[in-house]
């Protein structure tokens, strides 16, 4: 009987630790193609105004997963990716996932015209002198990072991705569900 109790408690411990690991480790998720689970590091500062002049701070968004995306109108892959981002943003309106879509070093007119044609519902943040982008050190443009609710960069996307496809939506939905559980 004692032996059975010991075995039972060991199994319980294993199960509990398994749950804890699954919650702590984002790598337990099914990560879509082109998304890298990277060595975690604190997100660099990101405080910018959006194209309408409203301030945004990454710090204030802690407690939710944040989709940080850097783009420019001159970059071909950014042009191809932006409609998919708009579709994705639409789908996540009611879920706890924050979008920080940052234009790198362009003016309001350029951004307004570009988004007006390709993704009119996206409100971009304006990194007017490119210095915030510089601090994030992307591999190139476009570049996307996923920041966890504690402000730690966990994932990086390689180039442009089809964000409105099922595997990406499922992945982001699971991440945002984690934010909801923790809040």
């Amino acid at each position: 009987m004692k032996k059975m109790c010991n075995t039972f408690s060991i199994i319980c411990c294993m199960l509990i630790s398994g749950f804890v690991w699954a919650e702590d480790s984002p790598s337990a998720l099914l990560v879509p193609k082109g998304i890298l689970s990277i060595a975690a590091y604190p997100a660099p500062p990101l405080e910018l105004n959006d194209i309408d002049g409203n301030p945004f701070s990454l710090e204030q968004e802690k407690g939710r997963w944040i989709f940080v995306h850097f783009w420019a109108s001159w970059c071909g892959p950014c042009r191809r990716e932006m409609p998919a981002i708009q579709n994705m943003v639409e789908k996540f309106k009611k879920l706890p996932l924050t979008f920080a879509i940052v234009n790198t070093a362009e003016d309001e007119d350029t951004v307004f015209t570009f988004l007006g044609l390709l993704a009119p519902d996206i409100v971009s943040l304006m990194d007017l002198d490119g210095q915030v982008t510089e601090a994030w050190k992307p591999r190139g443009l476009p570049s996307t990072y996923l920041v966890d609710p504690a402000g730690i960069v966990r994932y990086q996307a390689l180039g442009g991705r089809p964000w409105d496809e099922d595997e990406y939506l499922r992945f982001l939905t699971e991440l945002s569900a984690q934010s909801a559980q923790q809040n």
Binding site: W74, T104, A105, E106, D107, D129, G130, Q131, T133
Partner: peptide, 10 residues
């Protein structure tokens, strides 16, 4: 200007 430098660099 920094913006032009940044675009050129990227």
């Amino acid at each position: 200007p920094l913006a032009s430098q940044s675009t050129f660099r990227w």
